[in-house]
Design a protein around this nucleic acid. Structure first.
Lengths: 256, 256
DNA sequence: AGATGGCTACTGGTCTGACCAGTAACTGTC
DNA sequence: GACAGTTACTGGTCAGACCAGTAGCCATCT
């Protein structure tokens, strides 16, 4: 039936190590920054060969759980959650046509509008300072062309997501942002500079900043949606644009 | 600076194989159902040892790209894109970096409200039939107690997410739902039956169904939020409830 | 005493060669 | 032509070896 082999069929030795470490990380027994035993010690601990241990390490590493460096006698490092593996998976799923650019944009809009809303509620004063700085950075990046501007723009979204104080939202939004950038970088080589769009984007971000500063969660959430829509809509095929538009117009003050 | 080692530092041998296969899969050169060469042939192809090849295979396998079975002389199988690894990653992320139940609920509300909105736009007639069925199932599960009812309730959300036609949304929402259920199950052993809440939940779902049937995306999105809020708010500490409430009230027709 | 520079014992990364259980396909038989 | 047994391979695992690189120790120099 399924093309995947059924699970109870073949328990491989390295999987035991993988799930053992996973469990200990999930249970909090292994905290970020902790060290795993060296490979040779894991060999004696699990009574397996070193190649088996190494395969387990590769899986754990590929899932973003640990990182190891050659020569370091302190063993593999337990990492903090990072958007990198998530982004990689999403990118791959997208490229293999499991979903399209619209779906990615919808996903990003979903996550970031929530992050904006939360940021308005939970932001600290330090967050405001940092936000303001990224906005001015966008201004200075503007004359340097679309690529530099885009980078500054992404920075702003990153800082907002961080200010939401919601790790999950923060990380997944970053992953999706990354996937989108990769996708459109390949689709459109170099979009010509659009001075007007840049100016409007800065304006938008300023409004978002104000909303977050004034702790207006609903406004922040709505602005995130409409601003993302305006920034990316032109990349979406016309026949798929309405779904994005529906999402974007939700909560609009003038759409009721 | 960064806790992650910089990328250009140490190119490991197995990484070359990984990215080589990844590229060939992304470019379409390797299609689903194709076979990779056997490990021993990859050894000669890449001029590396077999352990190196195996580490590469483990990474590719963990990312859902390939699957290998012992004894099969035809080599590793290139898999169709599957959301399974994504779900695993998200599950892990939610378990580790879930600061609190509120954050998980916020995350779920974010994802599912979007899924509801999309479902209203993209649902097929078959989806409607399936949705209706889960609602009647909730009715029959109701006399069997809270646990059975909850299961039926989760089914409804699952079907809606699926009807959204958005793989990413669908998968991640499922992962988050599951994490929440596990967390609640650990926090509260057996919540006593709440007949009134069950009745209201069914009513809510009926309304959601109507909105999706009538293709009213905004209404569907709003209902998802308010219904989730009502269902779970009592589990959230009072001092954290406002953030959830703010999210839930966004887009409410009577909140402008 | 405190900073400095080498030394050493270990690490992870890789390779080789071996063994096992399991599978696909070929074989000869009926 | 259908079938059961054989065979030549496969992936999974282990053991032992080598290398380049690192952390921490220690003797040295200031």
């Amino acid at each position: 039936m399924s093309q995947l082999p059924r699970s109870p069929a073949k328990p491989r030795a390295f999987e035991a190590i993988v799930s053992h470490v996973e469990t200990r990380v999930l249970s909090g027994e292994l905290k970020v920054g902790d060290r795993l035993p060296g490979e040779r010690e894991l060999v004696t601990q699990f009574q397996v060969g070193r190649s088996t241990v190494r395969e387990a390490m590769r899986v754990l590493e590929s899932n973003g759980l640990i990182a190891s460096r050659p020569g370091d006698p302190r063993g593999a490092l337990v990492l903090s959650p990072s958007p990198a593996p998530l982004g990689k998976l999403i990118t791959h799923l997208t490229h293999t046509s499991a979903s399209s650019l619209v779906d990615l944009l919808i996903y990003r809009m979903t996550l970031e509008s929530s992050a904006n809303s939360l940021a308005a509620i939970r932001r600290s004063d330090a967050d405001l300072v940092q936000l303001e700085r990224t906005i001015t950075l966008m201004g200075t990046a503007r004359p340097q062309g679309q690529a530099a501007f885009s980078r500054a723009d992404l920075d702003f979204h990153e800082v907002v997501a961080k200010a939401s104080g919601h790790t999950l939202l923060h990380i997944s939004a970053a992953a999706v942002r990354q996937s989108i950038e990769q996708l459109i970088a390949r689709t459109i080589e170099e979009s010509s500079d659009d001075e007007a769009l840049m100016a409007r984007t800065i304006e938008h971000h300023q409004k978002v900043f104000n909303a977050i500063r004034d702790r207006d969660a609903h406004l922040a959430e709505h602005l995130a949606r409409s601003s993302l829509f305006e920034y990316y809509a032109h990349l979406v095929p016309a026949d798929q644009r309405d779904a994005l538009a529906a999402l974007a117009s939700f909560g609009s003050p003038d759409s009721v």
